[in-house]
Design a protein around this nucleic acid. Structure first.
Length: 424
DNA sequence: TCTGGGGTCCTAGGACCC
DNA sequence: TCTGGGGTCCTAGGACCC
Protein backbone atom coordinates (compact mmCIF):
# COMPACT_ATOMS: atom_id res chain seq x y z
CA UNK A 1 0.00 0.00 0.00
CA UNK A 2 1.12 3.53 -0.75
CA UNK A 3 0.11 6.79 0.92
CA UNK A 4 -0.12 10.34 -0.32
CA UNK A 5 0.07 13.08 2.27
CA UNK A 6 -0.87 16.58 1.25
CA UNK A 7 -0.52 19.75 3.31
CA UNK A 8 -3.84 21.59 3.49
CA UNK A 9 -3.74 25.03 1.83
CA UNK A 10 -0.01 24.82 2.44
CA UNK A 11 1.16 28.43 2.01
CA UNK A 12 -1.77 29.71 4.05
CA UNK A 13 -1.04 27.16 6.78
CA UNK A 14 2.61 28.26 6.91
CA UNK A 15 1.54 31.87 7.50
CA UNK A 16 -0.91 30.77 10.17
CA UNK A 17 1.71 28.85 12.12
CA UNK A 18 3.50 32.10 12.92
CA UNK A 19 0.50 34.39 13.01
CA UNK A 20 -2.20 32.84 15.19
CA UNK A 21 -4.38 35.94 14.79
CA UNK A 22 -5.30 34.83 11.24
CA UNK A 23 -6.03 31.18 12.04
CA UNK A 24 -9.79 31.65 11.92
CA UNK A 25 -9.87 34.42 9.32
CA UNK A 26 -10.08 34.10 5.55
CA UNK A 27 -6.52 34.20 4.17
CA UNK A 28 -5.04 34.33 0.65
CA UNK A 29 -1.41 34.02 -0.41
CA UNK A 30 -0.51 35.60 -3.73
CA UNK A 31 2.06 34.83 -6.41
CA UNK A 32 4.91 37.16 -7.34
CA UNK A 33 3.96 40.76 -8.03
CA UNK A 34 0.90 40.01 -5.90
CA UNK A 35 -0.53 38.68 -9.16
CA UNK A 36 -2.69 35.59 -8.64
CA UNK A 37 -4.19 33.84 -5.65
CA UNK A 38 -2.16 30.65 -5.24
CA UNK A 39 -3.25 29.47 -1.79
CA UNK A 40 -6.67 30.09 -0.32
CA UNK A 41 -7.95 29.22 3.13
CA UNK A 42 -11.25 27.35 3.40
CA UNK A 43 -12.88 30.52 4.75
CA UNK A 44 -11.76 32.48 1.67
CA UNK A 45 -12.89 29.65 -0.63
CA UNK A 46 -16.32 29.89 0.98
CA UNK A 47 -16.36 33.56 -0.03
CA UNK A 48 -15.92 32.55 -3.66
CA UNK A 49 -12.19 33.11 -4.16
CA UNK A 50 -10.67 30.67 -6.63
CA UNK A 51 -7.11 29.62 -7.32
CA UNK A 52 -5.66 31.82 -10.07
CA UNK A 53 -7.89 34.81 -9.45
CA UNK A 54 -5.82 37.97 -10.07
CA UNK A 55 -5.58 40.35 -7.16
CA UNK A 56 -6.91 43.38 -9.00
CA UNK A 57 -10.15 41.51 -9.69
CA UNK A 58 -10.80 40.40 -6.11
CA UNK A 59 -9.40 43.41 -4.31
CA UNK A 60 -12.91 44.66 -3.60
CA UNK A 61 -13.95 41.36 -2.05
CA UNK A 62 -10.75 41.24 0.01
CA UNK A 63 -11.50 44.64 1.50
CA UNK A 64 -15.21 44.02 1.93
CA UNK A 65 -14.82 40.70 3.73
CA UNK A 66 -11.65 41.54 5.65
CA UNK A 67 -9.63 38.83 3.91
CA UNK A 68 -6.03 38.71 5.12
CA UNK A 69 -3.62 38.77 2.20
CA UNK A 70 0.06 37.87 1.91
CA UNK A 71 2.71 38.14 -0.77
CA UNK A 72 4.33 34.75 -1.28
CA UNK A 73 7.20 34.03 1.12
CA UNK A 74 8.76 31.02 -0.54
CA UNK A 75 11.77 30.83 1.73
CA UNK A 76 9.44 30.32 4.65
CA UNK A 77 7.40 27.71 2.79
CA UNK A 78 10.52 25.85 1.69
CA UNK A 79 11.78 25.69 5.25
CA UNK A 80 8.41 24.52 6.59
CA UNK A 81 8.30 21.88 3.86
CA UNK A 82 11.70 20.57 4.99
CA UNK A 83 10.34 20.26 8.53
CA UNK A 84 7.24 18.38 7.44
CA UNK A 85 9.30 15.97 5.32
CA UNK A 86 11.71 15.41 8.21
CA UNK A 87 8.83 14.40 10.50
CA UNK A 88 7.50 12.01 7.85
CA UNK A 89 10.93 10.46 7.25
CA UNK A 90 11.26 9.77 10.94
CA UNK A 91 8.03 7.74 10.99
CA UNK A 92 7.90 5.98 7.60
CA UNK A 93 10.93 4.04 6.31
CA UNK A 94 10.70 5.47 2.80
CA UNK A 95 9.11 8.62 1.41
CA UNK A 96 9.12 10.11 -2.10
CA UNK A 97 8.94 13.89 -1.92
CA UNK A 98 6.64 14.81 -4.77
CA UNK A 99 6.29 18.58 -4.38
CA UNK A 100 6.73 21.29 -1.78
CA UNK A 101 3.59 20.15 0.02
CA UNK A 102 3.14 16.49 -0.93
CA UNK A 103 4.92 13.20 -0.39
CA UNK A 104 4.22 9.56 -1.12
CA UNK A 105 4.69 7.27 1.86
CA UNK A 106 5.69 3.63 1.48
CA UNK A 107 3.54 1.41 3.68
CA UNK A 108 4.66 -1.93 2.19
CA UNK A 109 6.09 -3.06 5.52
CA UNK A 110 3.07 -1.97 7.58
CA UNK A 111 0.23 -4.15 8.80
CA UNK A 112 -2.61 -3.47 6.40
CA UNK A 113 -5.30 -3.75 9.04
CA UNK A 114 -3.88 -0.92 11.15
CA UNK A 115 -3.20 1.59 8.37
CA UNK A 116 -6.15 3.75 9.31
CA UNK A 117 -4.91 4.39 12.85
CA UNK A 118 -1.27 4.60 11.71
CA UNK A 119 -2.30 7.22 9.17
CA UNK A 120 -4.16 9.33 11.72
CA UNK A 121 -1.16 9.13 14.00
CA UNK A 122 1.10 10.46 11.24
CA UNK A 123 -1.21 13.40 10.56
CA UNK A 124 -1.36 14.14 14.30
CA UNK A 125 2.42 14.12 14.64
CA UNK A 126 3.00 16.40 11.64
CA UNK A 127 0.49 18.83 13.10
CA UNK A 128 2.03 18.73 16.53
CA UNK A 129 5.68 19.04 15.44
CA UNK A 130 5.25 21.60 12.63
CA UNK A 131 1.84 23.21 13.07
CA UNK A 132 0.85 22.19 9.53
CA UNK A 133 -2.50 20.41 8.96
CA UNK A 134 -2.37 17.58 6.41
CA UNK A 135 -4.59 15.00 4.71
CA UNK A 136 -3.52 11.43 4.03
CA UNK A 137 -4.85 8.97 1.49
CA UNK A 138 -3.78 5.33 1.37
CA UNK A 139 -4.47 2.83 -1.44
CA UNK A 140 -2.85 0.30 -3.74
CA UNK A 141 -1.67 2.79 -6.36
CA UNK A 142 -0.50 6.37 -6.32
CA UNK A 143 -3.45 7.57 -8.36
CA UNK A 144 -5.93 5.92 -5.97
CA UNK A 145 -4.00 7.30 -2.99
CA UNK A 146 -4.54 10.75 -4.47
CA UNK A 147 -8.25 10.04 -4.72
CA UNK A 148 -8.27 8.90 -1.09
CA UNK A 149 -6.41 12.01 0.06
CA UNK A 150 -9.06 14.16 -1.55
CA UNK A 151 -11.72 12.43 0.54
CA UNK A 152 -9.61 12.79 3.68
CA UNK A 153 -9.41 16.53 3.07
CA UNK A 154 -12.98 17.08 1.96
CA UNK A 155 -14.93 15.13 4.55
CA UNK A 156 -14.20 15.70 8.26
CA UNK A 157 -15.62 12.26 9.02
CA UNK A 158 -12.41 10.65 7.82
CA UNK A 159 -10.47 12.59 10.47
CA UNK A 160 -7.74 13.40 7.92
CA UNK A 161 -7.01 9.85 6.80
CA UNK A 162 -8.88 7.82 4.20
CA UNK A 163 -7.91 4.26 3.25
CA UNK A 164 -9.13 2.59 0.07
CA UNK A 165 -8.34 -1.07 0.70
CA UNK A 166 -11.07 -3.06 -0.97
CA UNK A 167 -13.03 -3.23 -4.20
CA UNK A 168 -16.20 -1.78 -2.72
CA UNK A 169 -14.43 1.31 -1.39
CA UNK A 170 -12.52 1.76 -4.64
CA UNK A 171 -15.68 1.77 -6.75
CA UNK A 172 -17.58 3.99 -4.33
CA UNK A 173 -14.75 6.53 -4.15
CA UNK A 174 -14.33 6.66 -7.93
CA UNK A 175 -18.05 7.04 -8.44
CA UNK A 176 -18.00 10.14 -6.23
CA UNK A 177 -14.91 11.63 -7.89
CA UNK A 178 -15.41 13.89 -10.92
CA UNK A 179 -13.11 13.04 -13.81
CA UNK A 180 -11.27 16.35 -13.62
CA UNK A 181 -10.21 15.57 -10.04
CA UNK A 182 -8.30 12.47 -11.09
CA UNK A 183 -4.50 12.82 -11.08
CA UNK A 184 -3.37 12.94 -14.72
CA UNK A 185 -6.69 14.08 -16.17
CA UNK A 186 -6.37 17.72 -17.12
CA UNK A 187 -8.69 20.21 -18.69
CA UNK A 188 -8.32 18.94 -22.20
CA UNK A 189 -8.64 15.25 -21.54
CA UNK A 190 -11.64 15.74 -19.26
CA UNK A 191 -13.42 17.78 -21.94
CA UNK A 192 -12.73 15.10 -24.51
CA UNK A 193 -14.00 12.33 -22.23
CA UNK A 194 -17.04 14.36 -21.17
CA UNK A 195 -17.93 14.51 -24.86
CA UNK A 196 -17.99 10.70 -24.80
CA UNK A 197 -20.35 10.75 -21.83
CA UNK A 198 -17.67 9.92 -19.27
CA UNK A 199 -18.21 12.05 -16.19
CA UNK A 200 -16.97 10.15 -13.16
CA UNK A 201 -13.73 8.43 -12.23
CA UNK A 202 -15.58 5.12 -12.14
CA UNK A 203 -16.81 5.48 -15.72
CA UNK A 204 -13.20 6.06 -16.76
CA UNK A 205 -11.94 3.06 -14.80
CA UNK A 206 -14.67 0.82 -16.24
CA UNK A 207 -13.82 1.59 -19.89
CA UNK A 208 -12.83 -1.49 -21.89
CA UNK A 209 -9.18 -1.70 -22.86
CA UNK A 210 -9.73 -1.09 -26.59
CA UNK A 211 -11.64 2.12 -25.85
CA UNK A 212 -8.74 3.21 -23.64
CA UNK A 213 -6.21 2.58 -26.39
CA UNK A 214 -8.40 4.49 -28.78
CA UNK A 215 -8.88 7.56 -26.59
CA UNK A 216 -5.61 7.88 -24.69
CA UNK A 217 -1.90 8.14 -25.14
CA UNK A 218 0.46 6.13 -22.94
CA UNK A 219 0.08 8.44 -19.93
CA UNK A 220 -3.70 8.15 -20.08
CA UNK A 221 -3.47 4.39 -20.17
CA UNK A 222 -1.26 4.40 -17.09
CA UNK A 223 -3.86 6.47 -15.25
CA UNK A 224 -6.56 3.99 -16.27
CA UNK A 225 -4.52 1.02 -15.04
CA UNK A 226 -3.79 2.75 -11.73
CA UNK A 227 -7.49 3.47 -11.19
CA UNK A 228 -8.06 -0.26 -11.60
CA UNK A 229 -5.51 -1.10 -8.94
CA UNK A 230 -2.45 -1.96 -11.06
CA UNK A 231 0.50 0.18 -9.95
CA UNK A 232 2.41 1.49 -12.95
CA UNK A 233 3.39 5.03 -12.05
CA UNK A 234 6.67 4.79 -10.22
CA UNK A 235 9.19 7.14 -8.77
CA UNK A 236 12.89 6.98 -9.56
CA UNK A 237 14.68 8.30 -6.50
CA UNK A 238 17.91 8.81 -8.43
CA UNK A 239 16.17 10.47 -11.35
CA UNK A 240 18.40 13.37 -12.18
CA UNK A 241 16.85 16.75 -12.71
CA UNK A 242 16.89 17.57 -16.42
CA UNK A 243 16.35 21.28 -16.57
CA UNK A 244 16.26 24.29 -14.33
CA UNK A 245 14.54 27.59 -14.85
CA UNK A 246 14.47 31.01 -13.26
CA UNK A 247 12.04 33.55 -14.66
CA UNK A 248 10.01 36.50 -13.47
CA UNK A 249 7.22 38.75 -14.51
CA UNK A 250 8.26 42.28 -13.71
CA UNK A 251 6.38 44.63 -11.42
CA UNK A 252 6.80 47.36 -14.04
CA UNK A 253 7.77 47.30 -17.70
CA UNK A 254 11.46 47.08 -18.55
CA UNK A 255 12.50 48.83 -21.74
CA UNK A 256 16.31 49.03 -21.77
CA UNK A 257 18.86 46.34 -22.50
CA UNK A 258 20.76 47.16 -19.30
CA UNK A 259 17.73 46.59 -17.09
CA UNK A 260 16.98 43.26 -18.75
CA UNK A 261 20.65 42.28 -18.54
CA UNK A 262 20.60 43.00 -14.82
CA UNK A 263 17.55 40.76 -14.42
CA UNK A 264 19.15 38.00 -16.49
CA UNK A 265 22.30 38.24 -14.36
CA UNK A 266 20.12 37.77 -11.29
CA UNK A 267 18.53 34.68 -12.88
CA UNK A 268 22.02 33.35 -13.70
CA UNK A 269 23.10 33.92 -10.12
CA UNK A 270 20.10 31.97 -8.83
CA UNK A 271 20.45 28.99 -11.16
CA UNK A 272 24.22 28.95 -10.63
CA UNK A 273 23.79 28.72 -6.87
CA UNK A 274 21.10 26.05 -7.19
CA UNK A 275 23.24 23.99 -9.58
CA UNK A 276 26.17 24.11 -7.17
CA UNK A 277 23.95 23.14 -4.25
CA UNK A 278 22.75 20.11 -6.17
CA UNK A 279 26.12 19.20 -7.77
CA UNK A 280 24.82 19.84 -11.28
CA UNK A 281 26.42 21.43 -14.33
CA UNK A 282 24.88 23.09 -17.36
CA UNK A 283 25.65 22.23 -20.96
CA UNK A 284 23.24 24.58 -22.70
CA UNK A 285 20.97 27.44 -21.81
CA UNK A 286 18.31 29.60 -23.32
CA UNK A 287 17.09 33.08 -22.54
CA UNK A 288 13.60 34.25 -23.36
CA UNK A 289 11.66 37.47 -23.06
CA UNK A 290 8.05 38.52 -23.45
CA UNK A 291 6.01 41.66 -23.71
CA UNK A 292 2.69 41.76 -21.83
CA UNK A 293 0.21 39.46 -23.58
CA UNK A 294 -2.69 41.03 -21.66
CA UNK A 295 -2.00 44.44 -23.16
CA UNK A 296 -3.38 44.10 -26.66
CA UNK A 297 -2.97 47.85 -27.05
CA UNK A 298 0.83 47.50 -26.99
CA UNK A 299 3.14 46.02 -29.64
CA UNK A 300 3.87 42.36 -28.85
CA UNK A 301 7.16 40.52 -29.07
CA UNK A 302 8.46 37.18 -27.90
CA UNK A 303 11.77 35.56 -28.59
CA UNK A 304 14.19 33.01 -27.25
CA UNK A 305 17.88 32.34 -27.91
CA UNK A 306 19.98 29.29 -27.14
CA UNK A 307 23.65 28.98 -26.30
CA UNK A 308 25.79 25.88 -25.90
CA UNK A 309 28.64 26.12 -23.43
CA UNK A 310 32.11 24.88 -24.32
CA UNK A 311 32.01 22.50 -21.38
CA UNK A 312 29.58 21.73 -18.53
CA UNK A 313 29.77 24.35 -15.81
CA UNK A 314 28.03 25.73 -12.75
CA UNK A 315 30.03 28.91 -12.80
CA UNK A 316 27.77 31.93 -12.39
CA UNK A 317 30.08 34.25 -14.32
CA UNK A 318 30.32 31.92 -17.34
CA UNK A 319 26.56 31.45 -17.35
CA UNK A 320 25.95 35.18 -16.96
CA UNK A 321 28.21 35.93 -19.92
CA UNK A 322 26.53 33.37 -22.18
CA UNK A 323 23.05 34.42 -21.07
CA UNK A 324 23.82 38.11 -21.62
CA UNK A 325 25.12 37.30 -25.09
CA UNK A 326 21.93 35.37 -25.84
CA UNK A 327 19.82 38.26 -24.55
CA UNK A 328 21.68 40.71 -26.78
CA UNK A 329 20.78 38.64 -29.83
CA UNK A 330 17.04 38.85 -29.17
CA UNK A 331 16.62 42.23 -27.48
CA UNK A 332 14.72 44.75 -29.62
CA UNK A 333 14.28 48.39 -28.75
CA UNK A 334 10.82 49.89 -28.60
CA UNK A 335 9.02 47.17 -26.64
CA UNK A 336 7.78 47.17 -23.07
CA UNK A 337 9.02 43.90 -21.59
CA UNK A 338 6.95 42.20 -18.94
CA UNK A 339 8.71 38.91 -18.42
CA UNK A 340 12.06 37.25 -18.98
CA UNK A 341 13.74 34.05 -17.95
CA UNK A 342 16.72 31.77 -18.13
CA UNK A 343 16.41 28.05 -18.73
CA UNK A 344 19.24 25.58 -18.25
CA UNK A 345 18.82 22.28 -20.07
CA UNK A 346 20.91 19.13 -20.36
CA UNK A 347 21.93 19.22 -16.72
CA UNK A 348 24.68 16.78 -15.84
CA UNK A 349 26.21 15.53 -12.63
CA UNK A 350 29.19 17.77 -11.80
CA UNK A 351 31.15 14.76 -10.56
CA UNK A 352 31.14 13.13 -13.99
CA UNK A 353 31.68 15.89 -16.49
CA UNK A 354 33.15 15.62 -19.94
CA UNK A 355 35.82 18.28 -20.12
CA UNK A 356 36.51 20.25 -23.24
CA UNK A 357 39.62 19.38 -25.22
CA UNK A 358 40.89 22.91 -24.72
CA UNK A 359 39.93 23.48 -21.09
CA UNK A 360 42.52 24.47 -18.58
CA UNK A 361 42.21 22.50 -15.32
CA UNK A 362 43.91 25.25 -13.32
CA UNK A 363 41.36 27.83 -14.52
CA UNK A 364 38.50 25.50 -13.72
CA UNK A 365 39.78 24.95 -10.24
CA UNK A 366 40.23 28.67 -9.60
CA UNK A 367 36.67 29.36 -10.75
CA UNK A 368 35.32 26.53 -8.65
CA UNK A 369 37.00 27.93 -5.56
CA UNK A 370 35.77 31.42 -6.35
CA UNK A 371 32.16 30.17 -6.49
CA UNK A 372 32.66 28.17 -3.32
CA UNK A 373 33.83 31.32 -1.56
CA UNK A 374 30.96 33.41 -2.93
CA UNK A 375 28.47 30.75 -1.80
CA UNK A 376 29.90 30.52 1.68
CA UNK A 377 29.84 34.29 2.15
CA UNK A 378 26.29 34.57 0.83
CA UNK A 379 25.13 31.60 2.85
CA UNK A 380 26.54 32.44 6.27
CA UNK A 381 26.81 36.14 6.64
CA UNK A 382 24.86 39.26 5.97
CA UNK A 383 22.47 38.35 3.20
CA UNK A 384 22.03 36.10 0.20
CA UNK A 385 23.34 38.65 -2.29
CA UNK A 386 26.29 40.09 -0.39
CA UNK A 387 28.70 39.16 -3.20
CA UNK A 388 27.52 39.15 -6.80
CA UNK A 389 28.55 39.96 -10.34
CA UNK A 390 28.71 43.61 -11.42
CA UNK A 391 25.80 43.54 -13.86
CA UNK A 392 23.45 41.98 -11.33
CA UNK A 393 20.55 43.64 -9.61
CA UNK A 394 18.59 41.68 -6.97
CA UNK A 395 15.45 39.97 -8.25
CA UNK A 396 13.50 41.75 -5.52
CA UNK A 397 14.10 45.00 -7.40
CA UNK A 398 11.99 43.76 -10.29
CA UNK A 399 8.98 42.33 -8.48
CA UNK A 400 6.33 43.89 -6.33
CA UNK A 401 5.54 42.48 -2.90
CA UNK A 402 3.26 44.68 -0.88
CA UNK A 403 2.31 42.33 1.91
CA UNK A 404 5.37 40.24 2.69
CA UNK A 405 5.48 38.22 5.86
CA UNK A 406 8.72 37.79 7.75
CA UNK A 407 11.31 35.00 7.54
CA UNK A 408 10.09 33.65 10.84
CA UNK A 409 11.99 30.40 10.66
CA UNK A 410 15.23 31.26 8.87
CA UNK A 411 16.30 34.76 9.97
CA UNK A 412 17.02 35.47 13.60
CA UNK A 413 15.89 39.10 13.46
CA UNK A 414 12.51 37.98 12.13
CA UNK A 415 11.76 35.50 14.87
CA UNK A 416 8.39 35.96 16.58
CA UNK A 417 8.18 37.59 19.97
CA UNK A 418 5.78 36.40 22.61
CA UNK A 419 4.58 38.79 25.25
CA UNK A 420 3.80 37.09 28.55
CA UNK A 421 1.76 39.50 30.62
CA UNK A 422 0.80 38.14 33.99
CA UNK A 423 -2.88 38.19 34.65
CA UNK A 424 -3.93 38.63 31.03
C1' DT B 1 -2.61 50.39 -13.10
C1' DC B 2 -3.27 45.35 -12.09
C1' DT B 3 -3.08 38.33 -14.56
C1' DG B 4 3.01 33.37 -11.16
C1' DG B 5 6.84 30.08 -11.38
C1' DG B 6 9.08 25.55 -11.93
C1' DG B 7 8.98 21.18 -13.58
C1' DT B 8 8.20 16.37 -16.64
C1' DC B 9 6.59 13.71 -20.38
C1' DC B 10 4.59 12.86 -24.96
C1' DT B 11 3.88 13.62 -29.86
C1' DA B 12 4.17 15.37 -34.45
C1' DG B 13 6.93 16.82 -37.89
C1' DG B 14 11.22 17.96 -40.06
C1' DA B 15 16.06 16.89 -41.14
C1' DC B 16 18.92 13.61 -42.15
C1' DC B 17 20.74 8.88 -43.10
C1' DC B 18 21.03 4.61 -46.15
C1' DT C 1 0.04 11.04 -66.16
C1' DC C 2 4.31 9.56 -63.42
C1' DT C 3 8.74 10.26 -58.16
C1' DG C 4 10.32 4.36 -52.43
C1' DG C 5 10.87 2.64 -47.97
C1' DG C 6 12.66 2.45 -43.53
C1' DG C 7 14.97 4.29 -39.86
C1' DT C 8 16.97 7.76 -36.11
C1' DC C 9 17.43 12.06 -33.91
C1' DC C 10 16.10 16.61 -32.63
C1' DT C 11 12.94 20.25 -31.51
C1' DA C 12 8.82 22.86 -30.59
C1' DG C 13 4.70 22.86 -28.58
C1' DG C 14 1.16 21.02 -25.81
C1' DA C 15 -0.70 18.70 -21.75
C1' DC C 16 -0.23 17.88 -17.34
C1' DC C 17 1.46 18.36 -12.49
C1' DC C 18 2.34 21.26 -8.12
Amino acid sequence: MIGLIDCNNFFVSCERVFNPAVRTKPVIVFSNNDGCAVAISNEAKALGVKRGDPYFKIKGACNAYGIEIYSGNHKLYGDMSTRVMAVLSAIVPEIDIYSIDEAFLHFETFDRSTLQSTGRDIVRKVRRFTGIPTSLGIAETRTLAKVAARFAKKYPGYRSCCVIDNEEKRRKALELTPLREIWGVGRRLSRKLNDHGIITGLQLADLPVDAVEDLFNVSGKKTWMELNGSPCIGFEPDDQQKQMMCSRSFGKFLTTFDDLAAAVAAFASTVGRKMRERSLCAVSLSVFLYTDGFRSDLPQYYNTAHRTLSEPTADTLTITAAATDALRSIFRKGFAYKKAGLMISELTDSNHIQQSLFSNPADRERRRRLMETVDSINRCTIGHDTVHSGSYSPIDNFVRREKPSRLFSTRLSDIITINCNHGS
